[in-house]
């Protein structure tokens, strides 16, 4: 009798298993037959009630049945896993769980970009004092006290700070103060990229009392104007894009001779000086935007840096980090960068 029961149970289980359409259904069947209070266990509990000589045979039979059910179950499970294309539904269009969102300051991003462009040309990054002596910022750069050229740099002075040797303590108004510092530290060949905060006594849409400059300095044998032009052009194309052109024009700085102003073709009108609608481009001057100053290092500056100008020559440039990034992103007020308005900072 019990043998029939066992056989029926096996057939019943195998039948249901083969009919199952999903893994969920299969799991239900498993619980019904093989679960802790399932049908197989129920039969097992009957064994002690049987006559002693039958117990072994029935026990074996139940075990075999269990094994068979398990096998069929496992085969079916494998089959269903392959074929069953999930009936479970998830909204794949729902917003994902975001990682924490932070923001680097635009200036930091610009500095990284600029540094990596110049690093590929072998420029070493440097940083020199922001609170600096007059000598490094002016006198040593061929601008004696009271020289009219000094008017270009509206300078902040530090109260009571003065060196017998180097003059007054100031907030450096340009990264060019790093030129002599670099020359004191290293002998040629020099390839410096000095990126630092500078300060000038002015404030407006395009001038903040604090700003960043990046200063390139190359000193080696036979360095010439075309090397400066090549370097500028490389930077322009890498930073602003391959279509941008650059040019240098005559200018004057006391610490370079000759000196140049560097222009880049306008990003708005593409250097055409006119907008697609035919109107005059108001962003640029005749298709060109001023990037900043540059020049061949003045022999007096090389001398002041302990380098023989008869043996070595060099070029230098110093441009505003904010200026290039404002040109690139079309930001029209430099002061936004320093005001700490998180609505602005979180845009980048």
């Amino acid at each position: 009798m019990i043998k029939d029961q066992i056989r029926n149970l096996k057939n019943e289980a195998v039948g249901e298993i083969l009919e199952a359409k999903s893994l969920q259904e299969l799991e239900k069947i498993r619980v019904i037959f093989l679960g802790r209070s399932g049908k197989i266990n129920a039969l097992t509990k009957e064994i002690p009630k049987l006559p002693a000589d039958e117990r072994g045979g029935i026990g074996k039979l139940i075990n075999e049945t269990k094994k068979t059910i398990e096998e069929v179950l496992s085969q079916t499970q494998n089959k269903l896993t392959k074929t069953d294309r999930k009936t479970e539904w998830i909204d794949v269009t729902a917003p994902g769980i975001k990682p924490p969102e932070g923001h680097l300051h635009l200036i930091t991003e610009a500095i990284s970009e600029i540094s990596s462009i110049f690093a590929s040309l072998g420029f070493r990054r440097a940083r020199y004092p922001e609170v600096e002596w007059d000598w490094y910022a002016f006198e040593g750069l061929n601008m004696a006290e009271n020289h009219p050229a000094r008017d270009e740099w509206e300078t902040f002075f530090i109260d009571g700070l003065e060196s017998d040797k180097y003059g007054k303590g100031i907030l450096t108004p340009h990264t060019s103060s790093g030129q002599l510092r670099e020359m004191e530290k290293y002998a040629p060949p020099i390839r410096m990229l000095n990126i630092a905060k500078c300060y000038r006594r002015e404030s407006g849409m395009s001038h903040a009392p604090m700003f960043y400059q990046f200063e390139g300095l190359v000193v080696d044998k036979n360095i010439n104007i075309s090397h400066l032009k090549g370097t500028i052009d490389y930077f322009t194309k890498q930073y602003f894009g391959p279509d941008r052109k650059s040019r240098i024009r005559p200018f004057h700085f006391q610490f370079t001779e000759p000196s140049f102003e560097v222009d880049v073709t306008c990003l708005i009108c593409g250097g055409k000086a006119r907008l697609p609608n035919g109107k005059v481009c108001r962003t640029c001057k005749e298709g060109w935007m001023e990037l900043g100053g540059s020049g061949m290092v003045h022999p007096n500056v090389l001398k002041n840096g302990g380098i023989d100008p008869e043996k070595y020559s060099g070029f230098a440039f110093g441009w505003g980090v904010e200026r290039v990034l404002m040109m690139k992103y079309g930001i029209n007020d430099i002061r936004l960068l320093f005001e700490g308005d998180l609505r602005f900072l979180k845009q980048f």
Partner: peptide, 20 residues
Amino acid sequence: GYHNLPNTLPPISSLNYQKE
């Protein structure tokens, strides 16, 4: 004419410093 001068990258003869 500065515009008539070529654009050339300065050759690296040697660099004697360690990156920071």
